[in-house]
Design a protein around this nucleic acid. Sequence first.
DNA 1: TAGTGGTCTAGACCACCGC
DNA 2: CGGTGGTCTAGACCACTAG
Lengths: 237, 237
Amino acid sequence: MPQTIAARIEADIEAQILSGTWPPGSRLPYEHVMMEQYRCSRMTVSKVLTGMSARGLIVRRRRAGSFVAIPNADRAVLQIEDFAQQALHSGQSYRHAIHHRSLRALRRGELTALGLATSGQVLEVHCRHELDGIPVAWEERLILVDAVPAIIDEMFLSIPPGTWLLQHVPWNKAEHVISAVNASPQQARQLSIEEGAACLELHRRTWLLGSLVTDVSLTYPGSRYRFSGCFSPGGPA
Amino acid sequence: MPQTIAARIEADIEAQILSGTWPPGSRLPYEHVMMEQYRCSRMTVSKVLTGMSARGLIVRRRRAGSFVAIPNADRAVLQIEDFAQQALHSGQSYRHAIHHRSLRALRRGELTALGLATSGQVLEVHCRHELDGIPVAWEERLILVDAVPAIIDEMFLSIPPGTWLLQHVPWNKAEHVISAVNASPQQARQLSIEEGAACLELHRRTWLLGSLVTDVSLTYPGSRYRFSGCFSPGGPA
DNA sequence: TAGTGGTCTAGACCACCGC
DNA sequence: CGGTGGTCTAGACCACTAG
């Protein structure tokens, strides 16, 4: 039995939904009803319902009431852990190797591809990630120098670019695209796999206050890496 | 400028974090300070901070204060839309074809693979999904009959299994694994692609109140399908 | 237009934990 | 021990909308 009134209300509602007593689309008791039922103030009930609404479990409509949400899509929340952290957890040794690092101006084609209006300098970094000496990812990254001026002094000798950015730059928005590709000859060489082997490709763009910070493409050998994650309606777990 | 006091407080805090004025690990003003600053009650401030804490943007500690969270992993939230819904949005035509449907007992190997203690009946369904007549996914699904008794009367003639389940069964927890594989001869045939072509494989298990409901494996041709999604620290967007 | 949720107030008491 | 966050109250007014 939960300790607080709010937690008890929430647990009760979730139990009703999960048991099927309140199927998707059905109306919950009105706030003032639950307020009497639990002998608490309306604020307490409201706080619980607002939270559940924010998590997508219920839908609230003025003058109509609160309703159990009808899901129309599955959401998958993936944890994409830093390699160094992952190595710590699993006891493996992590190592990264910078294969390329250059400061240059953005090309015209990249401007449109990245949805940028004005040009600027970028730092381009190619990097290989290894766990226990085995290549697990090939990274090609562009970092917008205007967004992260401090980057020009960083050589990424002890910290890989992604970790450096995580530690130095907060981010506002990220966009992910996950696809599957057959390894190109270059990728196959970098990852020590057969040409044509299936690879996961993660493309991510990260923004800070509406301006692009970095655009990265990570290629993982399908035989050595997978994304996994859990998702509960009650929030990631 | 946001309308409500709470929204203004939240926007201000996020701006401070994003601008780097309050880097990860730094302490936020105490509740009573913000209360005076915004000339509002403590409840209003507390509600905002509680919400940001629930979303992982800040960490709150008694006697110490509230702090900007230090992220250690990227989170990607993927929307995995129902094919029928996706077709509606894009104006494509959706069609599914059931290739196999059988009611049988669980095999011993499956029991351990699915982490089940007691045996039971399962409905096994194989199904192909097509958009504009082109195969976009091959589905192999097990449905635990004990968890969804109504399923035995469903032939999935007009509704594919995943959609039927979404409409009839609420779920508690889902686990996703995304990997890349080279198409097997059978998969290549079902999806009209070359053998060995890179495919995305999505494996999902869904639970209701701790008991497994369904275990599904979806194979998408890498050339025709990708997962994408946005994630903001302020919640999925 | 009546009743719902949305928001806010000005207090209160408690649990916890860093000093 | 003091001050923080955690929780709750008993009201209030407003905005929206279904009937």
